[in-house]
């Protein structure tokens, strides 16, 4: 993310959380937090505890964020860059606020007949390949809960559509043939399959590194009559360090009811 992207991200974030923008410049935002966001971001549980107890007028804080630093370091407000704790706190909060969703395609309806909307389960999934090193992959999968068809890059397809949180007039939702709970399972096993088809060289290499270190460790203690505790501690630590594993984590997801003419195959 460039500084410009961060600025845009922040502006969208505060807008979508219904915060009033008090000032807005190219590289500065001054916002009035809502009570909810104050609780999420400002880390002052005691204030909110007392406010609730005394029933005083709630007074959420204002936040001034800059994405460009004045050359002499002047200018009030918090400087935000990609590594700043505040941004990561905001990132974290989006996960909390944007995890579960249900949306309907906003179909334009001319004649008076009713239009069926097909239920889709959409999941954004992070796959982490981890040993003493790590890398991640993101998948965006959509599953048609009527016919079981699965599509990748689901998120970009959604982004091209008009979506609304309320079911549009003259539309009805078809009932799922596949339950959401089995839908999740299907997507998970699809992901698993794709992981298994991947090149496993990274895990073979990690096991090799693991084995080398373990052999050194065994050699180090080979003359010991009884293996001391430090041997077992180190052995366990090597396992935790090198043992290759893949962690599949759902970032967010939800139900999407889309019109049938969607060309998803």
């Amino acid at each position: 993310m460039l500084q410009k992207d961060i600025h845009n991200f922040l502006e969208r974030y505060f807008n979508s959380n219904d915060c009033e923008l008090l000032e807005r410049y190219e590289s500065m935002l001054h916002v009035q937090l809502t009570i909810e966001l104050d609780k999420l971001l400002m880390n002052r549980p005691f204030y909110w505890h007392y406010q609730q107890m005394t029933g005083a007028e709630p007074n959420p804080m204002k936040l001034k964020l800059r994405t460009e630093q004045a050359e002499d370091g002047s200018g009030d407000g918090e400087f935000i860059h990609f590594g700043s704790p505040r941004l990561h706190q905001i990132f974290q909060s989006t996960k909390q606020l944007g995890s579960y969703i249900r949306l309907y395609e906003n179909v334009m309806q001319n004649n008076q007949s009713y239009i069926p909307l097909v239920p889709w389960l959409g999941l954004n999934i992070k796959v982490s390949y981890q040993c003493d090193r790590k890398k991640d992959l993101l998948h965006s999968i959509g599953l048609n809960l009527i016919n079981g068809i699965m599509v990748s890059e689901f998120q970009s397809l959604l982004q091209a559509k008009p979506l609304t949180p309320k079911i549009p007039d003259y539309c009805y939702t078809m009932s799922s043939m596949i339950k959401p709970v089995s839908g999740i399972k299907r997507i998970e096993s699809y992901i698993e399959q794709s992981i298994l088809e991947d090149d496993p060289q990274w895990s073979i290499d990690a096991r090799k590194r693991w084995q080398e270190d373990e052999e050194l460790l065994d050699h180090f203690y080979q003359d010991a009559e009884e293996l001391p505790e430090s041997y077992h501690v180190e052995k366990q630590a090597l396992k935790e360090l090198y043992e290759p594993k893949v962690i599949v984590q759902i970032i967010n997801g939800g139900m999407f009811y889309l019109s049938n003419h969607t060309m998803m195959h």
Partner: peptide, 12 residues
């Protein structure tokens, strides 16, 4: 409760 679309996209 469900998230709004913008926040959902921001999270991703």
């Amino acid at each position: 409760p469900w998230a709004n679309w913008e926040l959902y996209q921001l999270a991703l």
